[in-house]
C-alpha cells in the first residue's frame, strides 16, 4: 500500500478572470511508515495538496491513490470519502483555535461522537488519546481555554489521534510554540511514527526538515521541484526554492569541502556533528 499522486492539477476560481493555478501536473509518491516533509513558499500548492489527501478538495485532473482509496475529479467515484477521512487526518495550522468544548475530554471525544460512538466509549478513547500526547488525568475536566499554548495544541492533536488515523498530516505543528512546547510536539510526532503511523509535515522550518524527516518534497510554483532525502536537498543548489539551508548543515559542508572526513548523510543535529568531530580529533 502506498500514497501516490498521479498527474494532479488544480485551480482555484476556475473559469473566472482570477483563476489561480495551485497544482500543475504534479506526480510523486509518499512512502508509508516514514516522516515526509512537504516544503515550498507560500502559495506553492502545499495546502491544496494536503487537502486532497483526505478528500477535502478534489483534483481537476489526475488522481490520488491512498492505500485502497482513490480521489478523483468525479464526485460520484469518491464514495468512501468519510472512511478516507478516518484513514487520513489533518491537524491544521493553529488547531487550538478550533477547541470549543467546556472540558478537555469532551473536546477530544467530539470527533468520535460524530463517527457514531457512544458517550462513554468516546470518553474512554479520548483518555487514551490524551495519554498519548502526554496529558494526564488532571487535565480531563479542565477547560481547554485555561491551558498554555503548547497544552492546547496537544489537546487539539489528541482530538485527531482519538480517531486513530493511519496517516497523519500536520501543518506547521510547532508554529507559535516556545522551545519546550515545540520539543514536546516533535517528540510526540517521532513516537507516533515509531508506532507505525505515516507522518506528513508541512513546514517552513528547515531544522525540522533536517532533524525530523526521512524524506522531503519541494513544491515550487505549483509544480514538483524535488523529492529525496533532506541531505540530498541541502547539498543541491536551492537558490531557486526560497529555502534557507540550516546553518548546521552549511557548516558541515564547509568542513567536508576542506577535506575533513564528515559523513554528511548522518548530520541531523549538533550532537551528530560533534560526535563525528570527536572521531576525527
Amino acid at each position: 500500500m502506498a500514497i501516490k499522486i498521479n498527474d494532479v492539477s488544480f485551480s482555484y476560481l476556475k473559469k473566472t478572470p482570477n483563476e489561480v493555478k495551485a497544482l500543475d501536473h504534479v506526480s510523486f509518491e509518499i512512502p508509508k511508515g516514514k516522516i515526509t516533509s512537504i516544503i515550498g513558499h507560500t502559495g506553492s500548492g502545499k495546502s491544496t495538496l494536503i487537502q486532497m489527501l483526505n478528500g477535502l478538495l478534489l483534483p481537476d485532473s489526475g488522481f490520488l491513490e491512498i492505500d485502497d482509496f482513490k480521489v478523483t475529479s468525479e464526485k460520484r467515484k469518491n464514495k468512501r470519502i468519510k472512511d478516507l477521512r478516518k484513514h487520513v487526518s489533518i491537524v491544521f495550522q493553529f488547531p487550538e483555535y478550533q477547541l470549543f468544548e467546556e472540558t478537555v475530554e469532551k473536546d477530544v471525544a467530539f470527533g468520535l461522537k460524530n463517527y457514531g460512538l457512544k458517550e462513554n466509549e468516546s470518553i474512554e478513547k479520548a483518555h487514551l488519546a490524551l495519554k498519548e500526547v502526554g496529558l494526564d488525568k488532571s487535565f480531563y475536566k479542565r477547560s481547554p481555554f485555561e491551558l498554555s499554548g503548547g497544552e492546547k495544541r496537544r489537546v487539539a492533536i489528541a482530538g485527531i489521534l482519538a480517531i486513530d488515523p493511519e496517516i497523519l498530516i500536520l501543518d506547521e505543528p510547532t508554529a507559535g510554540l516556545d522551545p519546550k512546547g515545540s520539543e514536546l510536539i516533535l517528540n510526540l510526532i517521532k513516537e507516533l511514527n515509531r508506532n507505525g503511523k505515516t507522518i506528513i509535515l508541512v513546514t517552513h522550518d528547515m531544522n525540522i526538515v533536517l532533524n525530523h524527516s526521512d524524506y522531503v518534497i519541494v513544491l515550487n510554483d505549483s509544480t514538483l521541484s524535488f523529492k529525496g532525502t533532506p541531505s540530498e536537498l541541502f547539498t543541491r543548489d536551492v537558490s531557486n526554492y526560497s529555502i534557507e539551508i540550516p546553518e548546521l548543515f552549511k557548516f558541515a559542508l564547509l568542513l567536508k569541502e576542506h577535506q575533513l572526513n564528515i559523513d554528511i548523510e548522518k548530520i541531523k543535529n549538533v550532537d551528530d556533528l560533534i560526535n563525528q568531530l570527536k572521531e576525527i580529533k
Binding site: E247, L248, F251, H258, L260, V270, I274, L277, K281
Partner: peptide, 30 residues
C-alpha cells in the same frame, strides 16, 4: 546555532573564543 557550536567545540578543546563567523571557526578546525 553559532553560540551553541562554539560552546560544544570548546568542550572538545578547540580554542575558538575570538572566532566570530562559521568560516573562522571552520578554519580553526581544519
Amino acid at each position: 546555532f553559532i553560540v551553541e557550536l562554539k560552546m560544544r567545540l570548546k568542550d572538545l578543546g578547540y580554542d575558538i573564543d575570538d572566532s566570530s563567523s562559521l568560516n573562522e571557526i571552520g578554519e580553526k578546525i581544519w
